[in-house]
């Protein structure tokens, strides 16, 4: 489906933890056509500021419901967190090119999430459910870990890393990934690694995957003016020149990106 601009009703908009919120929208059309890794451009208020839309990745779909999670980090997300159930939001979506995954993935899939990076990966885990992917989740501390129960509910195997060691492996999720790949027998090596998280984490994932000769798919986050390919504001450097994160991405092959 090509992206459309629609007004959708807010089913719920609740704080889940710290500064993180879960937003549920009613849109059968988007729920049916969205694929993991795609995003919505949300006009957080009908009038006034902020001016530009905010891109937020799709966290999941359920029937006609579209779920998003977001962290309140600036004026846009702050205004969004004030929007209430029953109100309508002007959105454009679904946008962008999501994760590539076959119906029967070759080899195991590993998902690596850092912080809010769980957002698109839970949606992917749902689609990969029969293959029971391994999910590595990293956060600053136990308190900041998100969506553990949801991943478990999809039958995913989980491994956790926290910077302060308050849960799971003490250290970066990428260190955990590297160790895991080193210890893995060749036959058990994953066919695909999917990752979403802060830029330094994605850079590390790309490097580790290159070292182990495994292909990676990374979901990037950038400021955008339009979100649908017109402004050329969100470009990222790749081996074949600048590419738009909103159009050719937000998911890119790790080996294609120039860091």
């Amino acid at each position: 489906m090509t992206a459309t601009q629609v007004k959708v009703k807010i089913i719920s908009n609740r704080k889940i933890k710290n500064n993180c919120w879960r937003l549920e929208l009613d849109s059968g059309a988007i729920a049916r056509s969205a694929s993991p890794g795609q995003f919505l451009e949300i006009k957080v208020c009908d009038e006034g500021l902020p001016l530009l839309r905010r891109p937020i990745s799709i966290h999941g779909v359920n029937g006609s419901r579209v779920q998003l999670i977001y962290e309140v980090v600036g004026s846009g997300t702050r205004v969004l967190s004030g929007r209430r159930k029953g109100e309508f939001l002007d959105i454009i979506g679904p946008l962008g090119k999501g994760f590539e995954y076959g119906r029967k993935p070759v080899g195991k899939s590993v998902l690596v999430a850092g912080g809010m990076g769980v957002a698109p990966l839970l949606f992917l885990a749902r689609r990969l459910k029969p293959a029971k992917p391994l999910v590595l989740i990293g956060a600053g501390s136990k308190e900041q870990l998100l969506c553990l129960q949801e991943f478990k509910a999809f039958g995913c195997r989980m491994a956790i890393a926290t910077d302060d060691g308050s849960a799971g492996f003490k250290g970066k999720v990428t260190e955990m990934l590297d160790r895991l790949l080193r210890e893995m027998p060749d036959a058990g090596r994953p066919g695909n690694i999917y990752a979403c998280g802060p830029q330094p984490m994605l850079k590390a994932v790309a490097k580790i995957c290159r070292g182990h000769n495994i292909s990676s798919q990374l979901s990037l986050e950038r400021h955008m003016a339009c979100g649908f390919g017109a402004c050329l504001g969100c470009v990222v450097s790749t081996k074949s020149g600048y590419k738009r994160v909103c159009k050719e991405g937000p998911v890119f092959k790790g080996e294609e990106l120039v860091w």
Partner: peptide, 23 residues
Amino acid sequence: RSGNLPPRTCETPSGMLNSVGLE
């Protein structure tokens, strides 16, 4: 023309700055 180095846009009060550089 490949245009300027990113980041190329940011929102400002009631407006935006761009430096796409004629890509």
